[in-house]
Design a protein around this nucleic acid. Structure first.
Lengths: 235, 235
DNA sequence: CACTATGGTGAACGCTGTTTACTCTCACAA
DNA sequence: TTGTGAGAGTAAACAGCGTTCACCATAGTG
């Protein structure tokens, strides 16, 4: 660590920054992404709204910072779920990570909406949304890839390509390959992304209440589908 | 039809209502759900904002009306996809319906966000969101159930329950059963909901741009997964 | 000690949803 | 034909929002 001792000024500034973020998160939890307002934050901290511009260039910049923090929080939670079961099979640990993702999301619907919801221009930082375009998202993905890497190191992937020839897959997953390199066989990348969309579908619909018309409890469906996703990756 | 001839007043009123909705949809397409504003609509129509309250009780009420219209539009599009292939196997037609759903959604990202995105209090009509709680959503679901009914009438469902006993499924899917009755074997309901979450996951992530970090084109993945979903329902 | 970067304020601009009081006009009944 | 009342629309206002600007105090540094 080469962090020079923070000056008194820098310390106070850092404190104020976290106070601002905390107030913003309280508003987020209380009223959803749209409830985050600079004036309300300023009221909370006993300041005026323009003062906040000394710390964040705009409301969007503040929201983006919060999203980054949230991704780090989620990543740590998921990573903990993996290490908590460090003695189990890697694919079993992937299952635990998926459960941790669901649990975290259900406990934080507003935060989930901000991170994974519809990127509404004006409230959600548009371009660098979710996907590992931003570093926080990339580290989140990395958490899964690490454990998956352990599995395929022990049990080389046995085949079962998804009807798509490797050259096509390579072109298809060019963005992934540019960011993460070709650590895995191409079908494995396919299976991971497919599982991720499936996981997202279940969790997002559950968090957003889009399944209440059909079922009282999504967990059994989640568990059954999770088992199928994992066994599909095991082949 | 017992629609009495609409008076001149009623006709003008209906015209204004559609003009308001059209202006709102233009704003929606141009700037996303948050861009729908009564004052902007009023400017568009050469009126003042309070005048709109003669037609809609609030902004939320207007948005809800638009969501209802959109569900009807989507339902019609999906139903057309089924009838366009009326001579094919029912399950093949379900595939066409899924494709129509994806196509419609990709062509209308803002509308999709309004209907299926995170229900942000303040902009999205909260409770009666998506799920067939509202009638429009119910009719949308009905479209799928009709075609599925054709299939299972010809090919009775052969088994492959999802590891969940029927009594548990019956309790789990109580909301569905209350609305749609028990037309199908319980495992079929499970498979349908599971497929719906999977379809939603892929389409929502594609529409929201949450897959751009991984792949350039989602269609191949969509087709492969769709084929698997359908074949799972065929057993 | 002087000076400057930093943090904060108050006023203002333009935007938003919504409410209130008021006016005008058109349809309809006496 | 002449009221009359319902319907449609307006202007003004309130409260809130993000953001910018001019200004001021203070704390840290040369």
């Amino acid at each position: 660590m080469t962090t020079t001792t923070p000056s008194r000024r820098e310390r106070l500034r850092a404190e104020t920054v976290t106070e601002i973020k905390d107030a913003a998160r309280r508003l987020l939890v209380a009223g959803g992404p749209a409830a985050i307002s600079l004036r309300a934050i300023a009221r909370d901290l006993g300041m005026t709204a323009p003062a906040l511009y000394r710390y964040f260039a705009s409301l969007d910049a503040l929201v983006l910072a919060i999203v980054t923090d949230l991704f780090e929080d989620l990543r740590a939670t998921v990573a903990d779920a993996a290490t908590d079961h460090g003695d189990e099979e890697p694919l079993v640990r992937v299952g635990h990570m998926a459960r941790a993702f669901r649990r975290w999301s259900l406990d934080r619907p507003a935060e989930f909406a901000l991170m994974f919801g519809s990127p509404v221009p004006g409230i959600t930082p548009f371009a660098e949304q979710c996907g590992p375009f931003n570093d926080a998202g990339a580290r989140f993905g990395e958490t899964f890839f690490t454990v998956l890497g352990e599995h395929y190191a022990r049990h080389p992937f046995g085949g079962a390509a998804p009807d798509l020839p490797d050259p096509a897959l390579r072109e298809l997953f060019a963005p992934y390959l540019d960011t993460f390199g070709d650590r895995f066989p191409l079908p494995v990348i396919y299976l991971f992304v497919a599982a991720w969309t499936r996981l997202y579908g279940i969790v997002a619909m559950e968090v957003f209440g889009h399944l209440r018309w059909a079922m009282t409890d999504v967990e059994p469906l989640f568990e059954v589908e999770l088992a199928r996703m994992v066994s599909r990756m095991a082949r």
